[in-house]
Amino acid sequence: MGSYIRKRLILGLIVLLGVVTITFTIARVIPSDPAAKWVGPRATQEQIQEARIELGLDKPLIVQFGVYLQNLIKGDLGYSLRTHQPVSKELAAFIPATLELVLLSFLFAVIIGVPLGIYSAKKKDRLLDHISRLFSIGAVSLPTFWVALFFQLIFYSRLGILPLGGRLSTEITVMFDIPEITGMILFDSAVTGQWEIFKDALMHMVLPCITIALYPIGLVARMTRSALLEVLNEDYITAARSYGLKENKVLWSYALKNTLGPTAIVLTLSLGYTLVNTFLVEAIYSWPGLGNYVATAVVTLDYPAIMGATIFSAICYVTLNIVADIIIALDPRVRL
């Protein structure tokens, strides 16, 4: 097992190296001069030249790549061309907001999606199964950004019960000191017992969270259903029944344990989807997270920022994949 995880980690690193190489190449093909961006539109030719040397852009590409890799290992992602701040520092400021959103949505996906899938499989071809299937297929067919707008239209503009966007109301930020422990406001305010802030943050999270959770809920419900149905068709389930084991025992123990692998894989996969979906949703709900950061970076061609965010997402993706693989490997059938 240990050697398997080690091998898997090494492979993960190779993949990450590939990602870095490709992002680096893409960044260098962008038809824009980073040095000119660095010094601003009104700089002279000399200033640009200076900046070029300062940023190391005068060196051969391969050397630049080496330097970039070296810095990357130290956790240094370079400086944003727009703000002249270290990208790693900026990411650290934006990530918690996104993480908060992703984790909460993911929680929804698990506690709604999995039971829905199990229930649907149990009641296969009955009315409730049809309804739940239609719901889950519908959920994965909705354009996230449109749902976001739609929710705003109803809950903000028509009903006026939920805020339009942002993480906190302006009054709250003025009135209170926002605690900063993890950067996830919901968690921080709960820990410090500032329920006023907690309530406000929660109100702001409802819409983005549901918007993002819809897709993974549908995905997880569908996959859980089909994985469970497949297992229920196996001979060992018939055999378990033939020995008189109770239907509940058969379903909850014999069948479900066999679907743990596939379900866990879908969960990790959907976590990846959720991460990406936040990019669209954050823009609409003015959520100050990674998605918004990337959107700004793309518009301004701030390539160190784009690269930093891409590499961060890739690390998340690769880690999730490794987790999924380890879950598969936990199955006693897989011999390592």
Binding site: S242, Y254, K257, N258, D331
Partner: peptide
């Protein structure tokens, strides 16, 4: 059953 492999629950 006929196939002893698939009759026992693998996990």
């Amino acid at each position: 059953f006929q196939d002893p492999m698939s009759t026992l629950n693998p996990v």
